[in-house]
């Protein structure tokens, strides 16, 4: 088995799985009907992408595990998503800001993956980038509107930004998996995406009248699986309930 490729694919699929799950929690509870529909759309895109990433991960692993097996039958320590994405939704502004900080990474990341030496990855990226571009457009506009909107919305968005900032650095950390992927032309080194991300985020924060927090401390460990937040286990307890309670059933 190609261990590093499998690991890389889990990271992609777990990011979209975990974020898609969080976003889906909003369904029926958003501040306004149009936003409810848009959040459901985003979650649907992410779940669709998860099926592609984890489906391919299962094939690379070669043990007969399907995308569902990987999503529903692994415990927290086997998850490889960014910590930021497993954190609870908070208010609507926090949810959209987290989405924006991730989308601003994901779009250039997927664009680079379109040129992957692995044709399956290039194909998944080409499908996903169209959706991610739309997500970025929408999350960026919403963050700007809420940052700029009223005194209350500005304060809430600044608080959300301060809370999320110590998690953004994890997106750009590289380890031996990333080095191997970069050397084989499969995926870009995440550190190389920082400049594009900075440009997108700085411009949006300026338009949103939000202050970029100081400091570059970052929580880490989600992507490598060394450390997760306490929140992930609860998410999995909910998400995996039926598969765990009724093993082997067909749904």
């Amino acid at each position: 088995m190609d261990d590093t490729l499998f690991e890389f694919l889990l990271r992609q699929g777990d990011n979209t799985l975990v974020l898609g799950h969080r976003v889906s929690e909003w369904c029926g509870h958003a501040p306004v009907l149009e936003e409810d529909i848009a959040l459901a759309n985003t979650a649907l895109d992410l779940i669709g992408q998860t099926r592609m990433w984890l489906g391919y991960a299962g094939e690379v692993e070669g043990k007969g595990r399907s995308a569902d097996d990987l999503a529903y039958l692994r415990d927290a320590w086997d998850f490889r998503n960014l910590l930021m994405l497993e954190r609870p939704n908070g208010d609507f502004g926090h949810t959209l800001l987290r989405q924006f900080l991730f989308d601003a990474f994901q779009v250039p990341h997927l664009k680079a993956l379109e040129d992957s030496s692995d044709p399956r990855i290039a194909e998944i990226a080409a499908k996903s980038v169209k959706e991610a571009t739309y997500h970025l457009e929408r999350s960026r506009e919403t963050v700007i509107a809420l940052g700029d909107g009223t005194g209350e919305s500005h304060a809430r968005m600044q608080a959300a930004l301060d809370l999320l900032w110590p998690y953004v650095g994890e997106m750009f950390l590289s380890d031996e998996v990333d080095t191997d992927m970069a050397q084989r032309g499969i995926a870009p080194d995440p550190a190389s995406l920082r400049q594009t991300w900075d440009k997108t985020v700085t411009q949006a924060l300026t338009d949103a009248t939000l202050e970029r927090p100081e400091g570059d401390f970052t929580h880490r460990g989600g992507k490598t699986g060394e450390m997760h937040t306490e929140h992930l286990g609860h998410m999995l307890a909910t998400m995996q309930f039926l598969q765990r309670a009724y093993p082997g059933a067909t749904w």
């Binding site: 799950h21 889906s24 929690e25 369904c27 029926g28 509870h29 009907l33 409810d36 529909i37 459901a40 759309n41 979650a43 649907l44 779940i47 669709g48 998860t50 099926r51 984890l54 995308a67 569902d68 999503a71 529903y72 909910t238 998400m239 309930f241 039926l242 598969q243 059933a249 749904w251």
Partner: peptide, 24 residues
């Protein structure tokens, strides 16, 4: 919506989410 986060497979989750979205 009560079952979206507990849907048993990725496909079922997508179908249910799309359905509840249609209702909106």
């Amino acid at each position: 919506g009560n079952w979206i986060t507990r849907a048993p497979t990725l496909e079922r989750k997508a179908i249910l989410l799309a359905k509840v979205q249609d209702e909106a």
